[in-house]
C-alpha cells in the first residue's frame, strides 16, 4: 500500500487518547494494596510521538497495558476518541484492539513454532486462515525495512535482536492507528537500536499514527516529540530534551 494512502486512511483514524481518573492498585507480597498508577488527567493528541520515561516498576508497562485494554483500571476510564475502551465488554475490546492497536511487548511474545512471516502476519490470520499474497508482500516489505531477510526461519531460533525486530514488524503489520511500544530497543545493540528506533518513528509519522513508547533509551526518547515522566508527580507532557 503506498504510504500516502496509508496516512490518508489513518489521519482520520488516529484519535486523541485520554486517561482520566485512573487508579490502579496491586497487592504486594504481604497482601497490602499499593497504588501502581494514579493519573487524574492525561491526554495524548492524535498522531503524536510520545515517550514514557521513569524508573523500573513505576508503572510504564501498566500504562501501556491500560491503553491497549489488556486490563481494566480499578477506577477511571480510558477513551480513544469517542470510544470508551475501558467500558467495552471483553470481546468488543478485543475487536477494537485488533483494528486499532499495534503492541510491541518487552518480552516479544512471538509464537516460537511459527516462522518469521507467520508471526508477522498472525494478526491477519484471525479473519482468514491463509495468507493472501497481498499480506505476504506487505509483511516482506515491513520485515525488509526491519532488516530481516530470511522469513522462513522459526522464531525459536532467532537472536533476541531479531526477535525484537519481528515483534515490531508484527505490531506495525496492520497499520494500526495507535502504536504502543514497551522498551522496543532494550535488546538491541546501539547500532541496531538506532536503526530500529528511527524506523519506528518513521513508520508512525508516515501513517499518522499515535506512538506511545516506554523506554530507557535516551537516543530513542530524543526522537519523540514529547516525553512524559512517570513516578515523579502528576503525569504531564514535556518537550523532549
Amino acid at each position: 500500500m503506498p504510504a500516502s494512502t496509508v496516512s490518508e486512511r489513518l489521519a482520520s483514524a488516529a484519535q486523541p487518547l485520554h486517561f482520566s481518573g485512573i487508579e490502579v492498585d496491586h497487592r504486594d507480597g504481604d497482601g497490602r494494596p499499593f497504588r501502581v498508577l494514579d493519573i487524574p488527567d492525561f491526554k495524548v493528541p492524535p498522531g503524536a510521538l510520545i515517550g514514557l520515561r521513569g524508573p523500573s516498576g513505576s508503572g510504564k508497562t501498566s500504562l501501556l497495558h491500560l491503553a491497549a485494554g489488556f486490563f481494566l483500571p480499578d477506577a477511571g476510564s480510558i477513551r480513544w476518541g469517542d470510544v470508551a475502551v475501558s467500558a467495552l465488554p471483553g470481546a468488543a475490546r478485543d475487536r477494537w484492539r485488533r483494528e486499532t492497536v499495534g503492541f510491541v511487548f518487552q518480552d516479544f511474545h512471538l509464537v516460537p513454532e511459527l516462522d518469521v512471516l507467520a508471526n508477522i502476519t498472525l494478526p491477519a490470520s484471525f479473519s482468514g486462515w491463509r495468507q493472501t499474497s497481498d499480506q505476504v508482500a506487505r509483511a516482506t516489505t515491513l520485515a525488509g525495512r526491519m532488516g530481516l531477510t530470511d522469513l522462513r526461519r522459526r522464531a525459536a531460533v532467532l537472536s533476541r535482536g531479531e526477535q525484537q525486530r519481528v515483534a515490531i514488524a508484527r505490531a506495525l503489520f496492520n497499520a494500526p492507528a495507535l502504536i504502543l511500544a514497551d522498551e522496543p530497543t532494550a535488546s538491541l545493540d546501539p547500532a541496531h537500536a538506532a536503526e530500529v528506533g528511527s524506523l519506528l518513528v518513521e513508520v508512525a509519522r508516515e501513517s499518522g499514527a499515535t506512538l506511545l513508547c516506554a523506554s530507557h533509551d535516551p537516543v530513542l526518547l530524543a526522537r519523540m516529540q514529547q516525553v512524559a515522566v512517570i513516578g515523579d508527580g502528576p503525569l504531564i507532557l514535556k518537550v523532549a530534551a
Binding site: A68, F70, G90, A91, D94, R95, R97, R98, E99, V101, F103, F105, H109, V111, L122, P123, F126, R170
Partner: peptide, 16 residues
C-alpha cells in the same frame, strides 16, 4: 495460558 493471552492481546476473537 500465555499463548491464549498473547492471541487475545493481538486482538484475536474468542471464537478464534
Amino acid at each position: 495460558r500465555r499463548r491464549y493471552a498473547v492471541l487475545r492481546a493481538l486482538g484475536a476473537p474468542p471464537a478464534y
